[in-house]
Each structure stands twice: as C-alpha cells, then as structure tokens.
Amino acid sequence: MVAYTILSGLLFGLYFSLMAIGLNLIFGVMRMVNLAHGDFIMLGAFAAFFAYTLWNMNPLVTMLVVFFLFIILGGALYYLVVPRLLRAHDPEMLSLILFFGLSQIIQALAVIAFGNNQRSIDYTALGSGTVYLFGQGFEESWVVVASVSLLAIILVSIYLYVTKLGVATRAVMSHREEAASAGISVHRVSAYAMGIGLALAAIAGVFSPFMIGSIDPTMGTDLTTTSFAIIIIGSLGNPIGTIVGGMIYGLSLMYMESYQPSWSSLVPYLLLFIILLLKPSGLLGRRMRNA
C-alpha cells in the first residue's frame, strides 16, 4: 500500500507538473495571472474526446495537433489583449479580472457547443495493460501519460536553456526592462510564451480523461486553482520549479487519499499556504517579497 501510494504519487506528480507548467511560463514572462488556464485544459480534453469518438484518433496524435493549434491561438490571444492591458495602471491585478472574464466566455461557449453532460474516453485508448513498477501494478495509461509529461517538461527545459528564443525568454523573465534595452523583442518572446503556455495546458487536457476522470465544460475552474497551488509550491515564475511543485502535490494528495480521504482537498492549499509563509518565493524561487 505504501509503495503503491508513493509510486502513483510520482506518476501523477509528473502529470500535474505538465498541467501547471504553462501557467507558470505565462506568469514568469508576462506577470499575467491566467485564470482561464483550466479552461484551456478543458478545451484540450474535448479535442481528445471528439478526435477519439469521431475519428478514433489516438490521443498521442491529438496531442501533436492540439499543441500546434494552441500555439497559434495563444499568439493571437497575446496580440489581441496583452499589449493593451500593459498600458493600464496595475496590469498584474487587472489580468486576474481579464482572464476571469475570458474563462467565463470559454465556459459559456463550451456549454453551448458541447452540452453539459460528462464525457469519457475509453480508458484503453492509451493502452489497456498493466505495467509493473517495483512489484506494483499500474494502469498502462498512467505510465504512458507520466512518460509523455516527463518528455514534454524536458523539451520545455531544452527550449528555455538551449534555443535562442528560449534564452531570450529567460532574460525577459528575470529582467524585463534590461532585456528590452538589450534588443530582445519582448512582444515576440511573450507571444511565444503565451502560445507555448496555452499549448502545454491543452496537451495536459488531452490526457485529463485518463488521469482526472470524466470531462465537462466547467471542469476548468478547479484545475486552475490546483495549478496555482502547484506552481506556487514550486515557485512562481520558474517553470522548472513546477516539477518540484507537481511532485510534492502528487505525493501528498495520494497519501491523503489513502489514509485521510476527507481532508484530501485541503492538501494543496495547506501546502501552498505553509510554503508561502515560510518561503514566499516558492521552494526554488528567489526574492519577490515585499519590504
């Protein structure tokens, strides 16, 4: 039981990291709080559902399609709203409201388009076997999703630390003004960050029917708060810290569900709160704290 709890906590931890990393990227680059994050996860989930039920498309293929679609969507969204918002008095706080409004719009349109009923994808779509890890049997789909999540996080790290655009992205994250004066096109970097951020959320959505359960148009709200907890536990504005956050969240959630299920929903918030008070910048963060 203990081994099973720990291992499933790690598998889910990887998935949770993927779920939250896009939110962190967007906040890190733009200082925008994307309250519609969970709704993009929901859109990814419905994409997977329809691709599977209509064309029997493997979720792994859907993932690739969705990734490119949402990069374009994110870039467009960036140019549509963010430059305008940046001219306001307090863009960071206003972004909360703006994305709340966007979240309402997405949910309303999703209800009109998809209806209110829960939908599920046949769990065998990602493999029906059992995978044994350290003597414990796990659903094959969990292992597939955890592996893909790990791969995606590695690719994001390579992007941020190796590619030219990624290095520029990190420069904007740490010193926005200096980066701009050094000739980095902040808008271009930010538009990419927005696109990649939403695309990562959407591919997390593609796998959500296998990890989180049945999907519906309003599932996003809870996922947004969970993602927030994860990135703050790791560290806000540091995408790599998200992995730490995801792992801690996954492990503690599974532990509570095994031994104290009624308190399990308290876990993310309790962790978030304790970490904020002890180390306001998150476990891996630097500075960002008031006078």
């Binding site: 703050i232 929903s265 978030l272 704290r289």
Partner: peptide, 24 residues
C-alpha cells in the same frame, strides 16, 4: 503574515487561506 507577500503571491495566498477555512 500574508501581508509579507506582494502582488499575485498575496492574492493567491489569501485564496489558499480562504479555501483552507472552507474545507475545514
């Protein structure tokens, strides 16, 4: 002590606090 945080950290910290009270 939440007031030691700033910006989005404070907003989300207070959100966590309210959820903790709720779930308790």
């Amino acid at each position: 002590p939440l007031l030691r945080l700033s910006g989005a950290y404070f907003s989300i910290g207070s959100l966590a606090a309210s959820q903790m009270i709720y779930y308790t």
